[in-house]
Amino acid sequence: MSSMLTLLSILWYQLAFKPKPVPPETNIEGQTAIVTGSNTGLGLAAAKQLASHGLARLILAVRDISKGEEAKAAISRENPKCQVEVWQLDQDSWDSMSAFAGKAQSLDRLDILLLNAGMKRLEYTRSASGHETHIQVNHLGTALLSLLLLAPLRKTAALTGNPSRMTITASSLAFIASVDSVTGPEDQVIPFLDEPASFKPGTDRYCLSKLLNVLWARELAKHVNAKEVVVNMVNPGWCMSEFHREDPGAVSAGKYLGWSSEQGGYELVDAALRHPDSHGQYLSEQKIRSVPGSVLSAQGQVAQKRLWDETLALLRAVVGPDQLPNHLALAD
């Protein structure tokens, strides 16, 4: 799918489609959910909606504890029966993510994991880890958490006899980026993307980071048994929230095209609770959608496997191989 076709598709569904909440009878009583990036915007909207469907325990994974406490208070006012907890999580910090995952191992159950945290900047910045910030937060942080939190998700599936759910927030803007960026001439793609010379001012790097989310989620699903954990990815649509605060163009266009954060939350919750056959699939407009041919092509498959191998090696070097799951062979 060309960039122009992607943009036309976005324009069409933003104007023609309106997200709907999951059916009111949807019941997740007794379940536990983690939502990252949940103190504002789509993450907060999704957290509120999950709590409204009988969720027993909701963990708000946030970088700023004080803002997390404000979100907790708002959710608790509307859903006093849901036990809401605020846990610190910074995807710019290996130690923070390792500590968060270690704490999650003690949970008696973890049914739903919504990996929603992300960022967008128009200029190059380098994270504390040394990686370009989109690569660190949007890709490497999401990838690490998806691996570190597999164990409690699998444990819950064994306990309940039903698969747990992992949903990664992607974007249709992923398909503006090219798989050439992951299969280029460089021996290793992440070190290349970490260099300031590789960064084009504007939204290109954000779009690429979302493509990395799609490729990672698709490959991760190959290594996870759908009977244990359903792994999918979701396009929440173009929503007006604080997420676009550094992108004036998106703010201006969003006045005419943007959905509300609540509507974006409907998309996230729909992906996390419904579509049991969505393992390894991309959801948009609350349906399973095909990814573009470029992702499915031979080159796309090379890019997907290359990203998986390189990311896994990097994460093992950073956090130590003992912290990552042993069962990452291709699932049956």
Rank of each mutant, 00 (worst) to 15 (best):
L150T: 06
K210N: 04
K200C: 09
P163Y: 04
V214M: 08
L122Q: 10
A226K: 15
L153V: 12
L153Y: 05
G184S: 15
T133V: 14
K227E: 15
R165T: 10
R154F: 06
L159N: 10
L215A: 11
I190M: 13
K210E: 02
S209D: 02
S178R: 14
G202I: 07
A174V: 03
L122Y: 08
L113D: 09
V230Y: 12
A143H: 06
S172D: 11
Q105H: 08
H134F: 01
I176L: 14
G161F: 11
F199K: 03
D111G: 11
R154C: 14
P196M: 10
R126Y: 01
S106T: 13
R205P: 01
L115W: 07
L153C: 11
G202P: 13
H139A: 01
T203C: 10
S129P: 01
K120G: 14
R109H: 15
R165M: 11
Q188W: 03
N232T: 06
R126I: 09
A117N: 15
D111M: 07
D187M: 00
V234F: 02
D180S: 05
F199T: 13
L153H: 05
L148R: 01
L122I: 14
Y124A: 04
P196C: 13
V224F: 02
M119T: 12
N116D: 15
K210P: 11
G141K: 03
L159Q: 15
